[in-house]
Amino acid sequence: MDLIWRGLLKAVELVVSGDPEVWRITFLTLRVSGTATLISVLLGVPAGVLLALGRFPGRRLLVSLVNTGMGLPPVVVGLWVSILLWRYGPLGFLGLMYTPTAMVVAQCAIAMPLVTGFTLAGIQQLNPKLRLQILALGASHGQLYWLLIREARLSILAAIMAGFGGVVSEVGASMMVGGTVRGQTRVLTTATVMEVSRGNLDVALALSVLLLALAWGVTYALTSLQQRGRQA
């Protein structure tokens, strides 16, 4: 109990004192996971719409792959991305290993299936007649997709929250492709693991509180958007 109390006090102390190291870590966490989520949305939402509406051979296989990908273990992603990005790996010439960009790549691989899968489910839930109606009103395919995305916006916002939540909380992949390089690739989850192994449990607890606050803050902003127009 005493430890938890000290951890909370430490969290307040770290925030109030504006410890530059802690801010840098928090900021980097937001930057890496935010970028990964954004990329996943830009690619995953269209992919989900196409999978939901398209009719082509292999569609069922793709959908099953996306659904499996929604539970992709971060350490597996970390290992595969590492093997690709190592100096002597196939993409080694890019020199990305142990950089924030490598972490973004790994986190995209985790978030993309989540965003795609939730979008797919959301679009498929719409009444099929809606699609016919929109087409009957003379909409182009582009307009059709946009209108359907708008109709499924609640699911898509849920997809984004799931994607962000998935990557901001993962530690395995970030640790493997980023290391825990101070000031470069140290994020809240990897810093927490490191402080635990250093025996600084109060700092670790403080970082975990910051991580929860960050995840809650972003999710709250997205939830407000999702629930806007709905009477409380």
């Binding site: 916006r153 984004i160 806007r228």
Partner: peptide, 8 residues
């Protein structure tokens, strides 16, 4: 109803 998506 446009707002949530564009806002997001």
């Amino acid at each position: 109803r446009w707002a949530p998506l564009t806002g997001m």
